[in-house]
Structures are given as structure tokens and as C-alpha cells.
């Protein structure tokens, strides 16, 4: 069931985008989501789509992954678009009017724009997660949070928690699978019956999982302490992030994109 999940998956590759600095990728993805809202006419949306598709082509990841990324959210998107189309204030030519429902030219155009925004945001964030290993993302987050140290935010500790959490995701998934199978062998039906029966069936999965997580945490803490872990301060770092010329170029291309968008904006 977990294999279908596209979100947060990483596809190993050897492209320009794969080799970019994760900080650059993370910040630029957020920046991209910001500048999507500059776009307000069809020229600007075409530029944004062209830019996104170019980035996807550069990554060398198959198209189907991006389509699959949109699929689980398609109903949410259509619902939002529908609300926008049916209930937005009238403007331009009115095609249909009944009670509070108005389908107008402006409403339709806004609906299309919202659809485009959703798709662009999903494409870009999927591109980020597909081309960046979770580990690099957590490094990037640590780096970006660094200024918060000034307000006594425990950056090292949060980064360590994040990387341990990421490292244990597959281990816990395996364990979940194992416990589920063990409980099935003893006659527990998962996903059967009404909502209450289903919830009750989860208990023999959840409690062993919790207990074993506690045991794991204790073992891990002991092992960490035995290996001299005394907290974030005074540690050296094995992995370091390197800003390269390609990251500068990527940033410049986003600047250029912003200029073009502002210029084309109606």
C-alpha cells in the first residue's frame, strides 16, 4: 500500500537537477510557489509551464511520476475549481445564472488559473522530492533553520531528530508489515467490517508498534551515548553541502523568470 505513495519518494538519477545543492532546490521550490501568484494572464502561465516542463525534462524523471503525483489530489483540485467557477463574483460575460450560482467568463478563467496553479505547485514539489534524497533534504532544512539558533531554537537537535526519523521510516514500515502478518496469522482481519471493527483491528498493530518503538528508542539512545554523543554542540560534520556554479545558474534563471513574469503580467 505504501509503494503507491509518490509523495516523498526519491528516484535515483544522474541529472543536472539531481546534482544540485539541496538548499538551492528547497529554497527555489518555495520561491517558485511564491512567484506562481504573480501570474495573472495566459502569457504568464505559459511561461511558468514552459519553465516547469524544462526543469522536468532536465531531471530526466519519467512523466508518469508527475501525473501520478497529481492523481491523488485531482478531486480536491476539481472541487476547488468547481467552487471557484460556480460561486465567484460575476464579471465579463455571464453564461448561466440561477440563485447564488453564477457561471461567468471571469469565473471560468479564474477556475482554469487555479487548476494551473495547483498543477504547477504539485509538479515542482514532486520534482523536488523525486530528485532529492530525504537525507539531503534534512541537511538542507538544518542549514536553513540555522539562523533560528539566535532565538535559542534547538537546530541541531531538530536536525538529528529529523534524520533519525527518516532513517527509521523503512525499518518501521517493515516492522508494521511483520506485525500485521503476525496478527493476520492469529486471525485479525485488517480492513474488514464497519469503521468500528476496522479501528478495533488496528489496536493489535498499534500497541506492539508503540512498545517496540520505545524499546528501539532506548537501545538507540544507549548506543548513541556509548559512542560519545553529548548533544549538538562541539560536533564536527561528516556531510557538508556544497554550493556550486550550477546552483548559482539555477538561481539566476529563477530571477530571470521573475523579471519575465512581472513584465508580462497584465
Amino acid at each position: 500500500m505504501m509503494n503507491k505513495l509518490i509523495f516523498g519518494r526519491y528516484i535515483p538519477g544522474d541529472s543536472l537537477i539531481h546534482h544540485m545543492d539541496p538548499r538551492a532546490k528547497l529554497l527555489l521550490s518555495f520561491y517558485f510557489i511564491g512567484i506562481i501568484f504573480i501570474a495573472n494572464n495566459w502569457q504568464t502561465y505559459i511561461v511558468l509551464f514552459a519553465f516547469t516542463l524544462l526543469a522536468i525534462m532536465l531531471s530526466g524523471v519519467k512523466w508518469s511520476f508527475f501525473i501520478n503525483g497529481v492523481k491523488p489530489l485531482i478531486w480536491l483540485i476539481l472541487f476547488t475549481v468547481l467552487l471557484q467557477v460556480l460561486f465567484s463574483a460575476s464579471g465579463g460575460h455571464v453564461y448561466f445564472h440561477w440563485g447564488i450560482i453564477t457561471i461567468s467568463q471571469l469565473g471560468l478563467i479564474n477556475g482554469v488559473y487555479i487548476f494551473c496553479r495547483f498543477v504547477l505547485i504539485i509538479f515542482m514539489s514532486t520534482l523536488l522530492t523525486l530528485t532529492t534524497p530525504p537525507l539531503e533534504l534534512s541537511d538542507a532544512i538544518e542549514y536553513i533553520l540555522m539562523p533560528l539558533k539566535a532565538v535559542k531554537f534547538p537546530v541541531y537537535e531538530v536536525a538529528l531528530m529529523l534524520s533519525i526519523a527518516l532513517r527509521f521510516v523503512p525499518t518501521l514500515m517493515d516492522e508494521t508489515e511483520k506485525i500485521m502478518n503476525a496478527q493476520r496469522a492469529r486471525g485479525v482481519d485488517f480492513g474488514e467490517g464497519n469503521i468500528f471493527q476496522q479501528m478495533r483491528a488496528i489496536v493489535p498493530l498499534l500497541i506492539p508498534l508503540f512498545v517496540s518503538s520505545f524499546n528501539r528508542a532506548e537501545d538507540l539512545a544507549t548506543a548513541m551515548e556509548a559512542r560519545g554523543y553529548q548533544g549538538g554542540e562541539g560536533r564536527s560534520k561528516f556531510r557538508i553541502l556544497k554550493w556550486q556554479s550550477r546552483d548559482t545558474w539555477a538561481t539566476l534563471s529563477f530571477v530571470a523568470l521573475t523579471v519575465v513574469l512581472v513584465f508580462l503580467r497584465g
Partner: peptide, 16 residues
Amino acid sequence: VGATVADDVAFGLENQ
């Protein structure tokens, strides 16, 4: 502790 093999081997050294 580490997210990859090399990270785990380096963990003790990082602490020192």
C-alpha cells in the same frame, strides 16, 4: 544511528 553506512561509521568521530 546514521542515515547511511558512511554516516553511521562517522557518528562517533563527529561526536569527538
